[in-house]
Design a protein around this nucleic acid. Structure first.
Length: 638
DNA sequence: GAGCTTTCACCTGA
DNA sequence: CTCAGGTGAAAGCT
């Protein structure tokens, strides 16, 4: 460890990563006294930066009464008040002073008022946990807002609405700016909206590409860049994932008339100062979302340093600043993984260490790759690949669900759609097919519906569409991961296999490692849907005590699909959700898996097998095992 | 200079 | 293609 440089105050913890303000109380979750990351200061040169503005405390702007603090008292009656603030740049031709109506600051009054915030991690001080909770809260809010917007055909931008709520209620992580790594954010983490970067403290500007701050270097102060988003809006060449040529900001108006040379100010100036100060800069790279033509995915790619800068005339004829950044050595791969997996998707033959190109033998629409990069084992024990669920005993009801009469596809907000009503009024999936909320049962459209197979309410019944690979883990046998990025709420796969006869159950359970049953999962899974209560709606949150297991048990020992390879984790990224569409026996629904959070490519997919033994009586005689998930809040057994 | 308001720029997103 | 946005920095005023 580098001796602590003079200017660095490593014990500074005046900016807690997550401050949640409720009317009556202030809960502060502070981390391990490490407000300033040392990652950038340790091995490289003379950076001793103490973020100054990082210590700035944000005023609490949530308001619970009607008065918005406009009691300034010094109204100048009658007299025309002189306009304050920055002068408008371009004067309008006509005489009107062009004052736009004041932008109203949204005030979110009655959500969480007086209530405990049930979604916060009960006692966590783990930065990763805090970041994930904040991130998942944002996503839950966004999905719910999108669901509401879609029914009302109202204005969109649920991302902004969710972000505004997070900001105004101060549910955010790492709210102070800092140089270097951000606690709880890992290289390779993926994001779908710029607002997500804001609320976890990775990159503050909601649109701007360059985040910067005033930092102290010895006795000097300097405004230096701390984080950039390379989103492809400028002409950047980025073939090499360790090099990034970044263009300065400004001048790049879409209106060709307004284009002008870039100036050495703001972000550009900060980048220039960073070149001299040699401080590390976080880099987020934007890629096209493979799952959505118009969408974009942001990948956090770790720390870089600026090595040179120059001026250049762009194709559009303006002078533009260019900054060449090199990735700091010794960091795990981020964007490189992305490039690799995108290459495999384009041409699966380029994937190395393959044992079997498609272990589903054509059963799945997309081949399921089998690889071993760890040892020489030739594959898991034999089983029959199927993507179906096989019922041995007849179901209690084969009566199909009441179908809807929708023409073409089901649409949100259509009160006459029987399927929407089955699901409590809202369609369970967004237009992109993301599940909005965890429910006791999701009712999809069925054969008796009039809608087409393109209907969004047929998400899970259409089967697997991701590029999975079954791989050998280092200590947990075989596991499952995916070449595609998976968005929170996205469908992953069904638990296929044989439904075990309840009468026969427990006879040979102990021999069967591939049994699925609906044991109560941990908090993370239960608390997936805490969006509604944040906007004043009734809670859909089910506590462990309220959790009711289903009698269904599925064995994938002899036959099954990729889900039989999904390992347990106490900190999972996948959850199970009962879904019905082809029969009326609600005790024996399909068990479908969905993403709990955004899952970067090549991250092992895991779900919570449930709390062994313990409080939930249904766990009964299930055999317990030592957990090897390695997460920091591992329960030890499952 | 701190504290407030206003305006603007910004590699958004539908 | 257009257009409504949220945020923080900068600028001006008290």
């Amino acid at each position: 460890m580098f001796p602590a440089p003079m200017g660095v105050n490593v014990n500074q913890s005046s900016t807690p990563p997550l401050v949640c303000v409720t009317p009556g109380s202030i809960n502060t979750f502070s981390t391990t006294a490490n407000g300033v990351s040392s990652a950038g200061t340790s091995a490289n040169g003379p950076i001793d930066a103490t973020p100054i503005s990082a210590y700035k405390t944000r005023s609490n702007i949530i308001s619970f009464d009607g008065d918005d603090g406009s009691h300034s008292g010094n109204h100048t009656l009658g007299a025309e008040r002189k306009r304050r603030g920055r002068p408008p740049k371009a004067l309008s031709a006509d005489g009107s002073n062009g004052v736009k109506s004041k932008r109203p600051k949204p005030i979110y009054k009655n959500f969480v008022a007086g209530k405990e915030l049930a979604f916060l991690p009960s006692s966590s001080t783990d930065p990763r946990e805090i970041v994930e909770t904040v991130h998942m809260t944002f996503e839950a809010l966004r999905r719910r807002h999108l669901q509401l917007d879609e029914t009302q055909e109202a204005s969109r931008r649920a991302d902004l609405k969710a972000g505004a709520i997070m900001m105004s209620s101060n549910i955010r992580a790492n709210s102070g700016k800092r140089i270097g790594t951000v606690p709880g954010v890992e290289i390779g983490d993926i994001f779908y909206f710029r607002m997500e970067l804001c609320i976890i403290g990775l990159h503050a500007p909601s649109m701007g590409g360059i985040d910067y701050m005033t930092a102290k270097f010895g006795n000097d102060e300097d405004s230096v860049a701390i984080c950039i988003v390379s989103a492809g809006g400028y002409e950047n060449e980025d073939d090499d994932t360790d090099v990034l040529v970044y263009s300065g900001q400004g001048g790049n108006s879409r209106n060709t008339e307004e284009r002008h040379d870039q100036k050495l100010e703001r972000g550009n100036l900060a980048l220039e100062r960073s070149l001299h100060r040699k401080n590390v800069i976080r880099v987020i790279r934007g890629f096209k979302d493979p799952a959505c033509a118009t969408g974009k995915v942001y990948v956090y790619d770790g720390l870089y340093k600026i090595h040179e800068s120059w001026k250049e005339r762009t194709k559009s004829g303006i002078n533009c600043f260019k900054y060449k950044l090199l990735r700091e050595p010794g960091q795990r791969d981020g964007a490189a993984v992305w490039k690799l997996t995108q290459g495999w998707i384009a041409n699966p033959a380029t994937r190395g260490r393959v044992i079997l190109a498609d272990m589903s033998s054509g059963v799945e629409m997309v081949p399921v790759c089998l690889v071993n990069e760890v040892d020489h084992e030739k594959g898991p024990g034999s089983f029959t690949y199927t993507n179906q669920i096989k019922h041995i005993r007849p179901l209690s009801s084969m009566k199909p669900l009441q179908g809807c009469g929708c023409q073409s596809v089901c649409l949100p907000g259509d009160a006459s759609c029987a399927c929407g009503q089955n699901n409590g009024g809202d369609l369970p999936y967004s237009s992109l097919g993301l599940l909005a909320c965890r429910k006791p049962i999701v009712y999809e459209c069925s054969d008796s519906c009039h809608c087409s197979t393109n209907c969004r309410n047929r998400m899970s019944q259409k089967g697997v569409r991701l590029h999975f690979e079954v791989f050998k883990t280092t200590n947990r046998g075989w596991g499952l991961r995916c070449w595609d990025p998976i968005r929170a709420g996205a469908f992953i796969c069904e638990y296929a296999g044989e439904v075990i006869d309840e009468l026969r159950v427990n006879l040979d359970d102990s021999e069967d490692d591939y049994i699925f049953q609906t044991v109560c999962p941990g908090e993370k899974t239960l608390k997936w849907n805490f969006g509604p209560e944040l906007i004043g709606e009734d809670s859909t949150y089910v506590t462990a005590d309220e959790f009711e297991p289903l009698p269904i048990k599925i064995s994938a020992e002899k036959m099954g699909n990729i889900s039989r390879f999904m390992n347990h984790s106490c900190s999972p990224n996948v959850f199970w959700q009962p879904v019905q569409y082809d029969h009326g026996d609600d005790k024996h629904p399909h068990i479908m898996f969905f993403a709990l959070k955004h899952i970067p490519p090549m991250t092992e997919l895991t779900y919570d097998y449930g709390v062994a033994g313990a409080e939930s009586s249904n766990a009964g005689n299930r055999r317990t095992k030592n957990c090897m998930c390695g997460s920091r809040n591992c329960r030890g057994l499952f």
